[in-house]
Design a protein around this nucleic acid. Structure first.
Lengths: 297, 297
DNA sequence: TATTAATTTCAGAAGAATTGAAGTAAGCGC
DNA sequence: GCGCTTACTTCAATTCTTCTGAAATTAATA
């Protein structure tokens, strides 16, 4: 059986024009090279050089030089692609994330992650938690970042950080004059605008308030605009409001339990691609730290 | 260093879905296959299969399956091309031959030669002996078939057959009534048409006759037409006249020395390509036999 | 023709791959 | 959930391959 390594030796000899230099180049003795060549000629079925001074090729030798070079080049390239992929230097990474993280956390994280992996292709979807889970489950996204959900199913949840809910209202709102954290009962008279995130709050008092609410807005920008316009107030995770919107007030809630847990969502059965695994490790280490800093803790 | 053989084993396992079958397919034991796989994973830098039951690939495994398959396919193809070339099943063959051989000898020879080598590309040039030598010398033709020449030079001559000259004249010509071979002296009164081939005759008597000739024709068809039209007579190698032209007479010459030696013309320094070498051997064996039969000896 | 340099050959040494047996883990039926 | 079967891995010994260094051969050069 002809080996690629034999072709490699032959090409080196053909390029050097003699065995001694080629032997040095491949790191063997001249006798080893000579034997490899002899064996190659036997297996191919013809002489490769015109004389035993290896400075001129036969027609067969020329053909083998061309084909051999190409094979070596192609093989080495394939191997380097395999290695690059295994070491997560290339590959594609599809991330599905809730908007608050996609907007406030992922940009610097991705920037640093990609600094050492300039060849990695990234797709980022910002969608709500339920859809994040769906995308991961279906394999469209390699990894997701979403709020915790009870159902286990085919996806696994790994916590990254907790995020307390806060109250967002117009700057002129009566509640701004309270000099203490807001109780749910303080909101009885207020107009509450529901949103996708706040629906996750478990507190009975809040659920009751929400049940009476007539408006639900899913887009944060619209939500803030409505609050600013004085249409009502809303409850959002603090990360969502990071970088404080002008013309609105952010108030603390008294209910310490009103928080969401945000974490990684991954498929349980399918092992991650190397890039996904690398991103997972990176995210697990860097996101909690970044969020702590962002939220000033 | 990653070996193509390891990729071959991996691809087989990936395709079989288990080690045992793959081991049978490649003709080793399961433990050997297992070790090869382990080593491959170490060298690539990541796992290839999801579990140690080898029925589902990781993302890296899928990539390697694709790339590996392609490498194996391409390598095997290259090797088969090399072998085919070495065994002269493929390649190109450029033959330069004098017209008499190109017309009367080469067709059946080439037909038989190519029967076992349907992939070989052949070029055939029919030109005079001097040009045959020039084409071989310049490397445009791999091999030539021409009359012998004194000058050695860069080309080598190997005899194939001898071919006596004969006289060609109109059927009504006076010489037809001679009941013996024609002597040079018989031609003193005749009109001789010279041609490329007959100029090679060394006999002084002939040279004198030729010196007085006023017409030289290089193309055999034209030459015969002129003879048939009664313009004169000419001297040609018998092979050239094989398959007797209608309306002309072919007469024996008394001068037994009036013959040409036809043979192979090859470059001395450059070894022939495998196809050329095969054709050389074939020609050396088959052409003399065929000519003997053609000329009825 | 003698000298030098390169290549080949050969036998032994080193290294790599393979084997078979034993051990471990995974899947399957009860 | 438990034991049974099957598949895979590990290990040490063996076999096969490749490599080396010295000697012999061959080609080129003076």
């Amino acid at each position: 059986m002809i080996k690629l390594e034999a072709l490699r030796v032959f090409v080196t000899v053909a390029e050097s024009g003699n065995i001694k230099d080629a032997a040095d180049a491949v790191g063997r003795t001249a006798s080893a090279v000579s034997m490899t060549l002899k064996q190659l000629e036997e297996e191919i079925g013809g002489p490769l050089f015109q004389t035993d001074r290896k400075n001129s090729l036969t027609a067969l030798g020329n053909l083998m030089l061309d084909l051999g070079r190409e094979q070596i080049r192609s093989f080495d390239k394939s191997v380097s692609i395999m290695r690059a992929f295994a070491h997560s230097r290339i590959g594609s990474l599809s991330i599905a994330s809730v908007p608050s993280v996609a907007t406030n956390v992922l940009p610097p994280i991705l920037q640093r992650f990609l600094q050492t992996r300039p060849q990695v292709q990234v797709e980022l979807f910002d969608i709500d938690s339920a859809q994040v889970r769906r995308m991961v489950e279906s394999g469209v996204a390699d990894i997701g970042i979403a709020g915790e959900s009870r159902a286990g199913g085919a996806v696994e949840f790994t916590p990254l950080f907790s995020d307390r809910f806060k109250l967002l209202c117009g700057q002129e709102h009566d509640l701004c004059r309270l000099e203490r954290p807001v109780e749910w009962s303080d909101l009885n008279a207020a107009t509450l605008i529901r949103n996708g995130a706040s629906d996750r709050i478990e507190a009975e008092d809040y659920k009751q308030l929400a049940g009476q609410s007539l408006i639900t807005v899913y887009n944060v920008t619209s939500l803030v605009a409505l609050v600013k316009a004085g249409l009502g107030l809303t409850i959002l995770p603090s990360l969502t409001m990071h970088g404080a919107h002008e013309g609105v007030a952010v108030l603390e809630l008294a209910d310490a339990a009103a928080s969401r847990r945000v974490g990684l969502v991954e498929r349980r059965d399918v092992p991650p691609s190397p890039v996904a695994a690398a991103f997972r490790a990176f995210a697990l280490k860097e996101i909690p730290a970044l969020v702590a800093e962002r939220l000033g803790r």
